[in-house]
Design a protein around this nucleic acid. Structure first.
Lengths: 153, 153
DNA sequence: TTAATTAAGGATACATTTGTCTTCAATTAA
DNA sequence: TTAATTGAAGACAAATGTATCCTTAATTAA
């Protein structure tokens, strides 16, 4: 559904929001390791989300890193999509038509019109905080490393 | 949501199903014009869907072209996604995780789990015929050309 | 029958976008 | 001043999108 850029971004933001703070900033190393993403590519993505402190805050130098303010954690998930210009993924016509609407529906429109609003609602009305607090307060799954592994694999 | 490949494929199949038949096969020219897609790229995509008459039938030579059998029109839309190996777009985890499940949920899982089945249902249980007959029997919108255009644009 | 014509099939080249890494500059704490 | 850390630019790689050219198959006309 989303590009890798967006997948990594969503995971990274959620991770930073959960485990980072002004007192405990998270470096790009730990972040990319935790969310199973290529380090330098992730760095580039975070730059976009950090620009003008749009969503993520960052500090350079020793003990520097990334974190989210309490205010930023109230942002919707859509905010992330917008900053990466991928919000159209969930807003546009399934068949990729410009003019698909109630008056000018594509063949899938009348089916999809019941699903799309739910997708939009999920991204627009759920805040980063919402998603984190709804889960139990222990840990969150943001990578592909299974917590329990077999000996042989 | 989908790649251009898939968007064009969905549009093309719907168009061919609606306007093509053994007696009236449709050439790549008319098809790509009707669905607003690059001709040669569309040809390549149709090749995949025509391979082994998996979904589309084709005939070369004069009066040749593409069409769908009555049987093929009973296929689900998912069939198209599968042939293009893009069915994971609607089946995988929103955050792109391998292990996202009820036991090992990503932060969006419990929200998205109500939406995903609807998407899957739409593609798996709606046949090409279903989508075409649900619309009025006049014409279908499959391109970006507005039927009514202003003089100046 | 054969040749010419019309269509799809297939291979391949090219372009663009997306994903990834490398290198160096800027910043800040100690 | 030095070491740690993000920022920014650019090189490179891989995937996706697009065009070109030639081959193959079917029809039609000679």
């Amino acid at each position: 559904m989303f590009s890798k850029t967006t997948e990594y971004a969503l995971r990274a933001v959620l991770f930073i929001a959960k485990y980072g703070s002004v007192e405990n900033k998270l470096g790009i190393g730990p972040i990319s390791e935790a969310i199973d993403s290529p380090r330098s590519f992730t760095a580039k993505i975070l730059q976009k989300l950090t620009k003008d402190n749009a969503l993520i805050n960052s500090v350079t130098g020793p003990n520097g890193g990334f974190y989210l303010t309490a205010e930023a954690k109230k942002s919707s998930m859509m905010k992330i999509l917008e900053l990466l210009e991928e919000d159209t993924v969930i807003t546009k016509c399934v068949l990729g038509l410009q003019e698909c609407s109630e008056v000018n529906p594509c063949p899938m429109h009348h089916q999809y019109k019941h699903i799309k609003p739910q997708l939009i609602d999920l991204f627009e009305n759920k805040t980063i905080n919402d998603l984190l607090t709804e889960l139990d307060n222990t840990s969150i799954t943001l990578n592909n490393k299974l917590s329990i592994r077999r000996k042989k694999d």
